[in-house]
Design a binder for these strands. Structure first.
Lengths: 190, 190
DNA sequence: GGAACTTCCTAAAGGCTTTAGGCAAATGGG
DNA sequence: CCCATTTGCCTAAAGCCTTTAGGAAGTTCC
């Protein structure tokens, strides 16, 4: 009997690839076992269960996203940083739709607190250093940016903006202009 | 043999309730059959398949959301309209999480084109009548609003903003202030 | 009352998940 | 080097979900 050399790590990575190919919710232990030419039960030595697999793929995706965002932000500030961060998000979602869906997978609070999601939030906050916002407006702005990036990318990937003018790239650019303008002129509390 | 009185309509409505109770992706033909005290195979006279069920629940949710949005917008304009529409979205997501998830379910283009999603887009555009935007900026703004509403609500429901100050309601209010301000001062194309 | 239709049923096949228990391959101490 | 232990993958089996096929009991309407 030749061993397949399964490890949790390899399974999760293959799971992420599978997600990009067939969609995150089509990632099953069965499909993964087929990919390694191994019986399904064999995976259960490396993964707690099917949910565990999905959670680990989500964590991997968050790490990748955080890494890319960190690299994109290095040496940039203000609108430049805003645009770079936004593009990382959008590109990741476009090139790795399954992983991106995974990154949006709900995690229980402790898992989320230990994930790279925290790093992403910190990076988002770092963008705002180029603007003149103090607490609590800074937090409101962090939440706004998170909402816009996530919302836009997810509507776009659901096909919301295709087949209609103007094209999505143009809206994206103009929305980033608008956000930059908003952050520079954040309204005072009424 | 007493008949259960199944119809596609009743199944879809019960499916929507089930979604709110156990989550949209836990809605299965089996669970629905149990709820009607009927054998699973019986559902297949009323539903094409499991995917058909989910699609119909999605369409129902979009209708409900559009109805509520239309009612909220009646007689309002400007920031008032913006806030009312936004609150409909958020309240719907909070009170009907499963239905809201259903409303975000990807539909194929023809189905989407015939859905109440179109009406929601029109209503979003109607909000902008209270602001001084011309095309293509109006479309960019429609996309921005859709992104923020969807993004915020979905991050909130995933628990993104809980357990941290300031509380979500405050951010929501201030984000709406900010969006209102942005729409009144939409930046000219550079 | 009976023909035609509709509703729901039983039966069955196929897929995914998960646990239990077993044999074989790798590892490493004597 | 060899034997014991650990580890990796297997077979088997049970449970649940989906979907199709075909049949029997209600309902409708002439």
């Amino acid at each position: 009997m030749v061993r397949a050399g399964l490890t949790t790590e390899r399974l999760v990575r293959a799971g992420a690839e599978l997600a990009d190919e067939v969609g995150f919710d089509q990632v099953t232990a069965s499909a993964l076992a087929r990919r390694f030419d191994v019986k399904v039960a064999s995976l259960y030595s490396h993964l707690k269960n099917s949910q565990d697999l999905r959670t680990r793929i989500a964590l991997l995706a968050l790490e990748e996203l955080a890494d890319r965002a960190a690299e994109a932000l290095a040496g940039r500030s203000g609108k430049d940083a805003l645009g770079a961060f936004a593009d990382v998000y959008r590109d990741y979602a476009r090139t790795h739709p399954g992983r991106y869906a995974a990154a949006r997978h709900p995690l229980d609070p402790e898992t989320a607190a230990g994930s790279a999601g925290v790093r992403i939030a910190q990076l988002t906050r770092a963008i705002l250093r180029g603007y003149d916002l103090t607490e609590p407006d800074q937090t409101h702005a962090v939440r706004l940016l998170g909402s816009v990036f996530h919302g836009y990318v997810s509507l776009e990937s659901a096909g919301g903006f295709s087949h209609s003018a103007p094209d999505s790239q143009e809206s994206w650019t103009r929305i980033l202009d608008a956000l930059d303008s908003l952050l520079r002129n954040w309204p005072a509390h009424p």
